[in-house]
Each structure stands twice: as structure tokens, then as C-alpha cells.
Computed example of a mutant assay.
Amino acid sequence: MTVALVPAAGRGERLGSAGPKAMVFLHGLPLVAHAVRGLLAAGCVRHVVVAAPSSHQAEMIAALSAFDRVSVVPGGADRTASVRLALHAALEHVPDARIVLVHDAARAFTPPALVRSVTEAVAAGAPAVIPVLPVTDTVKRVDGAGVVLDTPDRTHLRAVQTPQGFDVDVLRRAYEAASGTVATDDAGLVERIGVPVHTVPGDVAAMKITTPFDLAVAEAVFAP
């Protein structure tokens, strides 16, 4: 059994929105609805839990009312707290869940095939799995003054996407050990407890919509 968590309490300031980023509309639906639709379309997700800002609970529930097997819970003060709350709620809905996916609402057009790929890799025995893409730009490491320190070899660098998939016990352990920690990457918490994180090929369609430019690109590329 697989459950999916969607922390959607982040603000949309960089998108020019006064409310949650997940509630920014694109092609008639908020980003969170596109993301949830993709998760359910994969055919392997039993239940989705969305962690929403307490100030926008009713709005988020209404936006997702067309979907079965979806719950909305109040999010926490930060992403880590929201995932922790969503995980607790998901395991109440599906106590026998063995795989947990954590997905960014901003990656609204992630292909269902990528959701299946991550899930299948965890089901095959990997304790933690993330989708990745090769880094194509040259990367520089700089100091506090912006002066270049060195140029890492990008051969071994990867850009990370979501959903990230985990054995439920592994993710639970990672969050128990992360008390007081604020993280933007769940796999990073798993790394801290010494569990290996495996990778599968990502997909350019799983782009993260963060800025008005990203939104314009997504509007053009993912036109119905």
C-alpha cells in the first residue's frame, strides 16, 4: 500500500501570490489539484494527504473536492512539521501502508509514470528513492562575498525532484530523529540516519513552478 503526502502550506510570494503557492491557478485548476491528479493517475497511490495552511483549509478542501481518497489537514509552521502531520494522518487512513511518497505541489505536472517509477523502486527493496536529473549547467562554489572558491565536477551532481519515496518505517525514523530540524528535502533527513538513498531517472516535466517565469513556461508547455 502506498500513501502520498503533499505539503502545501508554503507561501507564493515569489509567484506574486498573496496566498499559498499551491493555490495559484493554472489552466483552470490550482497547482495542488494538478499535483494530486497526477499522483492518483499513477494508479499506485491509495490515499493522498495534503497539509494546508490553517487559514486556507476550506479553500483547499473545496479545490480538491472532486477527488476521492484525498484528505486535507492543517499544516505546521514549516515544511518539516507539515510532512510530519501529514504522515500521521496518512497512516490513520491507511494503517497498513508500506510506502510513503512526499511530493511538492509546485511540481504540478509530474508524469504519473515517474510516480510509478519511484514507487516500484521502493517496492523492489530500496529504502529511499529520489528522481534526479543530471546537472547541465556549470556549478561554482562561492564564499560569503561571492568570490568563486572552486568548480565542482558536475559529473556526479544531480538535481533532485519529487515525489521522493520511502519505506514507511525509514521515513518515520528519519522524522523522529529530526526533532527541531527544518528541512527542505526529506531524503536529506534519511541520509542523516545512515540509510542509503537510491535514484531513478527524473523527468523534465516534473519542473518546479516557483517564479512567474516558471508559471509562464508551464502554462505554455502543459496547455490542455
Rank of each mutant, 00 (worst) to 15 (best):
D169T: 14
D96A: 14
A220K: 15
A206Q: 06
P111D: 07
P212Q: 10
P134E: 10
S55R: 04
A216I: 04
D150T: 13
M60W: 00
D143S: 05
M60L: 01
A51F: 01
T155C: 02
R69E: 02
A86R: 03
F67G: 04
A216Y: 04
I61D: 04
A205M: 09
A128N: 01
L91M: 15
V45N: 03
G165K: 02
G76P: 03
A113L: 12
A42F: 08
G146C: 10
V195D: 01
P20E: 05
I130G: 06
A18Y: 04
D96H: 13
V190Q: 05
A124H: 11
P163T: 12
M23P: 01
T136P: 01
T138I: 14
V45K: 00
L15Y: 01
G146L: 09
L5C: 07
A177H: 13
G28C: 03
A90D: 05
S71N: 07
V142W: 07
P7Y: 01
D143A: 02
Q164T: 14
A220S: 15
L64W: 02
F222V: 01
V190K: 03
A145I: 06
A108S: 05
R84M: 03
S54W: 01
T162L: 12
D137L: 13
R141K: 13
T2D: 07
P20V: 06
E176K: 08
A121M: 11
R192P: 08
S117E: 13
C44H: 05
A66K: 02
A220T: 14
R172L: 12
A177R: 13
R98A: 13
A218S: 10
V195T: 14
L39I: 08
A41S: 15
G146S: 08
V83N: 05
M23W: 03
V102M: 04
L114D: 00
D153G: 10
A121I: 06
K21W: 07
V48A: 00
E120H: 11
D68R: 15
A9Q: 09
S179K: 12
D104H: 07
V217S: 08
V204M: 09
L29M: 04
D186P: 08
A216Q: 14
R79C: 00
G10H: 08
M1H: 08
G10W: 00
M23T: 03
P74V: 03
G202K: 09
E219Y: 11
M207H: 14
D143L: 04
A183H: 11
A106K: 09
V147D: 05
A178G: 09
G144M: 12
S179N: 07
H27Y: 12
A124S: 15
A97I: 05
G165T: 05
P212C: 11
V129I: 13
I61R: 00
P212L: 12
D169Q: 15
P196F: 04
D96C: 09
P7L: 08
V6N: 06
V70E: 01
V45Y: 04
A9P: 00
V139I: 15
H56G: 02
L149T: 12
R37K: 15
T2A: 14
R107G: 04
V132L: 10
A159P: 00
A128W: 02
G125R: 06
P152F: 07
G12C: 06
H198R: 13
T210Q: 11
D169G: 13
T80L: 12
L91S: 06
A216G: 06
R154V: 15
V139H: 12
